[in-house]
Amino acid sequence: MTRTTRLLTLLIAVLLLGGIGTGAVLYSADRSGKRGVEQQGGPPVRVGSVSLQSAGRQLVFRNMAWGPHRDELATVPADQPDSERTASGVKCLRFHAAAGTGVCLQAVHGALEDSYRAVILDDRLHELRTFPAAGIPTRARVSPSGHLAAWTVFVSGDSYAGTDFSTRTAIVDTRTWTLHDNLEAYAVIKDGHPFQSHDTNIWGVTFADDSRFYATLATGGHTYLVQGDVTARTLTTLHQNVECPSLSPDGTRIAYKKRAPGAPAEAPWRLYVLDLGTMTETATAEQRNIDDQALWADGSTLVYAIPGDFGADLWTTPADGTGSPRRMVTSALAPAYLG
């Protein structure tokens, strides 16, 4: 075989293989388009309309499955969490919603570096108002009425595990667009006395109503559960060693992550529940490290994220310390229940 013949044979082989590959891609895309479903080795995801005012009870979350809809808000029926997902086209790093109002923390990709913003969404996921965020998004919550939204970002650092970080937490009233852009400006009452410190950090708001909320306050190497008052602009300490609180639907208990004695420094937290009436702590059956703000699925079950194959999975465990953890949804983060 001459050199020219060998080159010609190689060229034909390359063209044939390229044609086969292109045909396979086009066939796959055609099938995907006909079905309206994308599945990249994970749960099936369908493009569709997502509403925050659902006829039935829905679970909405940040879709972490690899594919064209990664990081988009997606929804599934609450009683079928592993079913096909409906993707919205709206991307959020952190998200929460209640009463038809959503808060979506987004990255804005720039030529040199990313910036971040908090977006308030209506029930059709349309932008109502945007606010610049001072750093990497980490927590988000909406009040039960939908009238208040809160978010926390890392101004410096990217983990709560150490002490070398700074947070910024803001609350906005969606009726008047009054913005409290830094809760560190609130007056702190610690152990019954006014308190001031240069090292105060506040994060992880959870709302009781349109005036009262709970959050974490850190100072002097310690963390505290604080009760906040939006009208009075005060934060009052209630209990030590509480991070990322989440108020139960009946307003009587706080789910939170607690630094457990003897736990490694890089994985210090365990999931607990605090009775606000008696200040009694109950350890849940979840014994792994939890670096999340848990969500109450109902009055007895907690939902939280744990690192998984595609970034994060959602798990559940009973709030009373019984039972055992169960994986509920793969490839998902930042959940909210609607309806």
Rank of each mutant, 00 (worst) to 15 (best):
A133T: 09
D30I: 05
P132H: 12
R3I: 15
D173A: 07
A140W: 07
G146T: 01
V90I: 09
S115T: 08
E243R: 04
D291I: 03
Y27L: 14
D209I: 15
V25A: 08
A134P: 04
G146A: 03
R129G: 01
R62V: 15
L8C: 07
E113R: 15
A74L: 12
R326G: 03
A265P: 03
T322A: 12
R129Q: 10
D123A: 14
G18I: 10
D291L: 12
D158Y: 13
L8Q: 10
R326P: 01
W296L: 14
G135I: 07
A185E: 05
G146N: 05
Y337C: 00
T101G: 10
G135V: 04
T75W: 03
T234S: 12
G110H: 07
P335A: 07
A55H: 04
R327P: 04
R94S: 08
A297Y: 10
L217Y: 04
V103P: 00
I254E: 00
D313W: 09
V153I: 13
F213I: 15
G228Q: 09
S54C: 09
C244Y: 08
V103K: 12
Q58C: 01
S54V: 06
N201Q: 13
G299L: 03
T301N: 07
G41M: 03
W177L: 13
M1C: 14
D250E: 13
G162S: 11
G21L: 09
V142H: 03
A150H: 06
V172Q: 05
V242N: 08
L73E: 06
H222T: 01
A99K: 14
A149S: 04
T75Y: 05
K257P: 00
K257M: 08
Y304N: 05
M64Q: 08
Q80M: 12
V50Y: 02
L7I: 14
K91Q: 14
M1N: 11
L10M: 10
F310I: 03
M328D: 01
A150T: 08
A170Q: 05
L271A: 05
L112Y: 00
L112W: 01
Y256H: 14
S331D: 13
R141T: 11
R124S: 09
Q53N: 10
W177Y: 14
D173G: 06
T280G: 06
R270T: 12
S166Y: 06
W296M: 13
L7A: 09
L179T: 09
A118C: 03
D292M: 15
T178K: 04
L26D: 03
Y214I: 15
S166F: 07
G135W: 10
A55D: 15
G277N: 11
Q293E: 08
A74G: 15
A134Y: 09
K91G: 10
V50R: 09
D181A: 01
G311Y: 09
D313N: 13
A98K: 06
Q39H: 02
V172G: 01
D173I: 00
K257E: 00
A134G: 13
A78E: 14
G110Y: 06
W203M: 05
P144N: 03
R168Q: 11
V226Y: 06
S51D: 08
V242I: 02
D313A: 04
A334P: 08
S51M: 08
V155P: 06
G110W: 05
A185K: 12
F165D: 12
S248A: 12
L10P: 00
T75P: 01
L225W: 08
F61T: 01
A297W: 10
